[in-house]
């Protein structure tokens, strides 16, 4: 069996229904995501405002730094808050996000305990404004927002940072989810290519099914050693509902919705990605294609998110029967 797989690897991938980069771009993103709606998701400020209008829960926005002169007044702006997150509005791949968990006389304390001087924070914001983290180096704005106080349910399996739940929502139907756990290597960030762990999720029950770190399948968190299998995600249906509701928000057919669990506020939508990555398939050890094709077969997609979540679960069960990994 093994040597056969190695002999013709692409055949094996096709059998598993794995979505490749070319097909994702050619058959899904180009087809279902109209370019004119991209600015809605590429600009996190706009996404946030849209979500607030639609009643979707998002982390509270403290301030927007739009110009260099505002950096000088940073300490006044930040005075009321001891914990906050600085992020570029047009950032991608989690880059340029600075999480401050406390403040002292000398400056701000990063998640890993390192101290940042005031001028270092200023420079970071200047970099954001000059477009260092935005696509094509366009001038950008910096958002300062509520730092999510994440639900302790994942405390054992995340190294600092905020674990989040990435869900691929295709035509309003959540098709695949993963839990992203930061590691020491990812410096508290939840992006897989930065070294976070991706953990597969049973769409029907909201239980984790084992994960992937870099390119290796793992069962336990590499830093704490705790198992990452069969964890129950609290309020799973709410998370699905929130993800499904994001489709109307941005009018895009194929999106990745990132949601965090706040200990007090419950699930909050962090951002929407119009070009979600493929690693989610590795985390779930399943291909996206069978589920995407199942959605494409549905003639009329129900307009209520509740109906769509039901559909999502039935599609999940369907595809579990047909293909076993």
């Amino acid at each position: 069996m093994l040597w056969k797989n190695l002999l013709n690897p692409s055949k094996r991938l096709r059998e598993l229904g794995l979505l490749g980069m070319n097909q994702r771009n050619g058959d899904y993103i180009l087809k279902y995501n109209q370019r004119k709606f991209y600015p809605l998701v590429d600009d996190k400020l706009r996404t946030k405002k849209l979500a607030q209008q639609a009643g979707i829960a998002v982390p509270e926005l403290y301030a927007v730094i739009e110009a260099e002169y505002q950096v000088a007044h940073l300490s006044e702006i930040l005075a009321p808050y001891s914990e906050f997150v600085i992020k570029p509005a047009h950032g991608s791949g989690g880059e340029g996000i600075l999480i401050i968990k406390g403040r002292s006389k000398e400056g701000c304390r990063k998640l890993n305990g390192a101290l940042l001087t005031k001028s270092e924070v200023d420079h970071h914001i200047s970099n954001i404004l000059s477009g260092m983290y935005s696509l094509g180096g366009q001038p950008d704005v910096a958002l300062i927002e509520y730092r999510v106080d994440f639900d302790p349910v994942f405390e054992q399996v995340s190294y600092q940072g905020v674990p989040d739940i990435r869900t691929i929502v295709f035509q309003g139907i959540p098709v695949m989810s993963m839990l992203r756990l930061p590691t020491r290597m990812s410096d508290g960030k939840a992006n897989l290519h930065q070294g976070a762990i991706g953990v597969g999720i049973d769409m029907a029950t909201g239980r984790t099914t084992g994960g992937v770190w870099h390119h290796d399948l793992i069962d336990a968190h590499p830093d704490s050693g705790h198992t990452i299998n069969h964890l129950e995600i609290p309020g799973w249906d709410n998370i699905l509902l929130l993800s499904a509701g994001c489709r109307e928000l941005v009018s895009l057919g194929y999106i990745g919705v990132d949601i965090v669990l706040d200990s007090k506020l419950g699930p909050l939508m962090l951002e929407i990605n119009a070009r979600p990555g493929l690693s989610i398939q590795l985390a779930n050890k399943q291909g996206l294609l069978p589920r995407l094709e199942a959605v494409e077969k549905i003639k009329s997609i129900p307009s209520s998110p509740e109906e769509r979540v039901k559909l999502a679960k039935s599609i999940y069960r369907q595809t579990q029967n047909s293909q076993v990994l």
Partner: peptide, 19 residues
């Protein structure tokens, strides 16, 4: 829209461990 050769490597854990 087929796979890239690098993806065969990227998804190697699935190819090798699958089943």
């Amino acid at each position: 829209t087929g796979y890239r050769i690098s993806e065969l490597w990227r998804f190697r854990s699935v190819i090798v461990k699958g089943n």
